[in-house]
Amino acid sequence: MSASAVVFYVLASIAVLSAAMVIWSRYPVHSALYLVLTFLSVAGIYVLFEAEFVAAVQVLVYAGGIMVLFLFVILLVNLKDTLGPRVRLHATFSSVIGAAVVGLILYVYSKGRVPGTSAASSVLREGGNLQVIGAALYREYLLPFEIASVLLLVAMIGTIILARQKT
């Protein structure tokens, strides 16, 4: 097993365990901190897959921006009692759905073939991941890029309207 494979398995197990702790922990702040751990290990996996730009965006937007948003709302919404997961109520329902989805995907995997690996990446020859992604974003995907900015503007206006104090 190569070194990058070992790194992948370590990061993947950290991500899965901390994702489970997000669901399992009683306090929302603990969930938020475990969520940061999950995002950071997923960002490490992106670096491993030579997607450095997406990894940087993941750290900046998820572990930076979204986490601060979550923590602010957790602090604003000052709940006295914290209820744990209502696993007992929905245990059978949830486990049946979960087992069905996992079984379905494993079945499809056992039936089909995953496309084979391609030739060595030509990204480095074209000037690195950031340059290649920038060229793709501003040439091929210019219209979706602009639509995404309009979407963010709409989200911003909607957030301000929704969270505004009624006077």
Binding site: A51, F53, V54, V57, Q58, V61, Y62, G65, I66, L69, F70, V73, V77, N129, I133, A136, L137, E140, Y141, P144, A148, L151, L152, V154, A155, M156, G158, T159, L162, A163
Partner: peptide
């Protein structure tokens, strides 16, 4: 990778709206 960047942008907007609803 380009689609991943778009997904992250959409997720950011979705979280902002969702937390405002909360």
């Amino acid at each position: 990778q380009v689609f991943g960047v778009f997904t992250i942008a959409v997720a950011a907007g979705e979280v902002a709206i969702g937390l405002a609803v909360v």
